[in-house]
Simulated assay, not measured.
Amino acid sequence: MFEPFMREPWAVVTLVALAAGMVGYFVALRGAGFAAHALPMAAFPGAAFAALTGVSAYAGLAGFAVLGALILAGLHRGARQDAATALVLGAMMALGALLLSLSGAYGNHVEGLLFGQVFAVGRRELWAALGMGAGVPLLLLALARPLTLSA
Rank of each mutant, 00 (worst) to 15 (best):
M1Y: 14
M6L: 12
M6C: 06
R7G: 07
E8C: 09
E8K: 12
E8P: 08
P9W: 01
A11G: 07
A11P: 06
A11S: 08
V13F: 14
V16M: 08
A19Q: 07
A19M: 00
G21W: 05
G24T: 04
V27W: 02
L29I: 00
G31Q: 04
G31C: 08
F34G: 09
A35V: 12
A35N: 11
A36R: 07
L39Y: 07
P40K: 09
P40F: 10
M41C: 08
A42F: 02
A42T: 07
P45G: 01
A47H: 11
A50M: 00
T53K: 10
T53L: 02
G54H: 03
A57F: 12
A57C: 03
Y58D: 14
Y58K: 09
A59P: 09
G60K: 02
L61M: 15
G63R: 02
F64M: 05
L67F: 06
G68S: 01
L72N: 05
L72M: 06
H76K: 10
R77A: 07
R80F: 14
D82R: 03
A86T: 09
V88L: 02
G90S: 03
G90T: 06
G90F: 01
M93N: 06
A94C: 10
S101F: 15
L102S: 07
A105K: 14
Y106G: 10
G107Y: 13
G107A: 15
H109I: 12
G112K: 14
L113E: 01
L114R: 06
L114M: 11
F119V: 15
A120V: 08
R123K: 13
R123N: 10
R123H: 11
E125W: 07
E125Q: 09
E125G: 11
A129M: 01
G131W: 09
G131E: 03
M132L: 15
G133E: 00
G133N: 04
G133F: 00
A134L: 15
L140P: 01
L141C: 09
R145T: 09
P146L: 04
P146N: 03
L149Y: 02
L149E: 08
S150R: 13
A151R: 10
A151P: 06
